[in-house]
């Protein structure tokens, strides 16, 4: 017969599996960790000039900003061992032509001497002559224009506090 057990034997649960699991969880969350990145946004309306309408269109003053590529520039970048693009000095020498009616301005996105606070003073001054609450503005990006170019223009327009901003449809073919 077995010996009589002690009356107050301490019960010790085996902690090892719990610690194992806990560590696994910990490692999982450390590995998947991605800190929240703050991003901003610019609002605009979509093109709505689809289809035909018999309704008479009221003559309203409208600012139609056309963007052209004056000089595409050279694509300059390096690739790391995982094929990831690093050191992208995009399109050095790139030049954009902005046309509003008969007015024309040139803009170099990668000019190191560019004032980042006020990238297009001429356009900003021009926009001041219009009523910002009533005048619709449309951005018409032509062949070769990239997203970054458009955002700069949109930024200037939003800064001038224009309420109605829209985009023109595609011109480029597939």
């Amino acid at each position: 017969m077995a010996k009589k057990k002690k009356k107050f034997e301490e019960i010790k649960p085996d902690m090892t599996p719990m610690i194992d699991v806990t560590f696994l969880l910990l490692i999982f969350f450390i590995v998947t960790l991605k800190f929240k990145v703050l991003e901003g946004r610019l609002d605009a309306a979509l093109p709505k000039d689809r289809g035909s309408s018999t309704a008479k269109e009221e003559e309203i003053e409208k600012i139609d900003i056309q963007l052209y590529v004056a000089d595409p520039g050279d694509l300059d970048f390096e690739i790391d061992d995982k094929n990831k693009v690093t050191n992208l000095k995009v399109f050095s020498g790139r030049k954009i032509r902005i046309e509003v009616g008969t007015q024309k301005w040139y803009y170099e996105p990668f000019d190191p001497n560019r004032d980042t606070q006020n990238p297009l003073p001429e356009l900003a001054t021009f926009l001041k002559t219009f009523d910002k609450d009533e005048t619709p503005v449309s951005i018409d990006a032509r062949k070769g224009i990239v997203y970054g170019d458009v955002v700069v223009i949109l930024d200037v327009i939003v800064r001038a506090k224009f309420e109605q901003v829209s985009f023109a449809g595609t011109f480029e073919q597939e």
Partner: peptide, 23 residues
């Protein structure tokens, strides 16, 4: 609205295409 997040070097025609699809 929808949010379009595009790389700064994306040709704008892709964004225009998305807008077209939206309509």
């Amino acid at each position: 609205p929808i949010l379009i997040r595009a790389d700064r070097n994306t040709p704008f025609k892709y964004i225009q295409k998305i807008m077209e699809v939206c309509t």
